[in-house]
């Protein structure tokens, strides 16, 4: 597969090399992709095309059947459990349903990764959590002691983003960040993601079927179809593409 307009001279934060994954049926088939440091790559496609599976591969929650996945220069096959944990500490993940811990307050949810890493002292954690909640436009005094069940969908999503960025990760993964939100909240979350990309300059991989939002925030867009990338490139190039499936996908969106 071609390098798909990979930014010249940029170091790869994520690299998938000839990766295949199958469950009951093939999901990803000999997929190759490189994500440059500080780049925002959006992976779009129909439901069930393997977008979320790709994120699980990058997180190391799943092994490819064939091929290799490298994150920040480390092949996930080659490293041990302790190294995996160290590597994961540098990755933030925003889950589709936020995946907040039901029994913990908003503050404890955002502080969880910081406490688990054991790097920061408790006063520094408290400061970081308040800063991060403010960064995602939430009032720390208002939401810190609330449980996830007491938050609206948009607030839960923002808390999920805050939890992911609190440790200031080198790589940020979003799984359907605007799914299930009303158009206004969806716009707010997209604008928030755009602002975070500018402020934090973190490498991001965003999986979504929301083409409009992805065009706004992504440096490059990759379109998955039947387990393969049919297009990888800049949003403008995507609009100009004459590849039939890309055309029909954009028309449907």
């Amino acid at each position: 597969m071609s390098p798909h307009a990979f930014p010249a001279m940029a170091a790869a934060a994520v690299e998938l090399d000839q990766v295949s994954v199958a469950f009951a049926r093939p999901v990803l088939h000999e997929v190759s992709l490189r994500v440059a440091t500080a780049e925002t790559l959006a992976v779009i496609g129909e439901s069930g095309t393997g977008k979320s599976t790709m994120l699980r591969l990058i997180l190391g929650l799943q092994q490819p059947d064939v091929g290799t996945v490298s994150v920040m220069g480390h092949s996930l096959r080659a490293i041990g459990r302790a190294e995996q944990r160290t590597l994961r500490a540098q990755i933030g993940m925003v889950f589709q349903g936020a995946a907040l811990f039901d029994s913990l307050t908003t503050f404890e949810n955002v502080a969880f990764g910081l406490r688990e890493s054991g790097v920061m002292a408790e006063p520094a954690i408290r400061t970081r959590v308040r800063e991060t909640l403010a960064l995602v436009d939430l009032d720390p005094d208002e939401v810190s002691q609330t449980l996830p069940a007491q938050l609206s969908g948009g607030m839960r999503k923002r808390v999920g983003i805050a939890r992911a960025i609190a440790p200031r990760p080198a790589l940020l993964l979003y799984d359907e960040p605007t799914a299930g939100l009303d158009p206004l909240t969806s716009n707010t979350v997209t604008a928030l993601m755009q602002r975070l990309q500018q402020e934090l300059r973190v490498t991001s991989v965003v999986v979504s079927h929301d083409v409009r939002a992805m065009v706004r925030i992504a440096d490059r867009i990759a379109l998955l179809h039947e387990g393969r990338f049919v297009f990888v490139g800049a949003p403008d190039a995507m609009r100009a593409s004459d590849e039939p499936y890309t055309q029909s996908f954009l028309a449907a969106a």
């Binding site: 929650l61 944990r85 160290t86 589709q96 995946a99 688990e116 939890r163």
Partner: peptide, 17 residues
């Protein structure tokens, strides 16, 4: 099981726990 189906277990692993 509800943590599993709502991806909270994945979230735990992601945060190194």
């Amino acid at each position: 099981s509800s943590m599993k189906v709502t991806e909270q277990l994945d979230a735990l692993e992601t945060m190194g726990a």
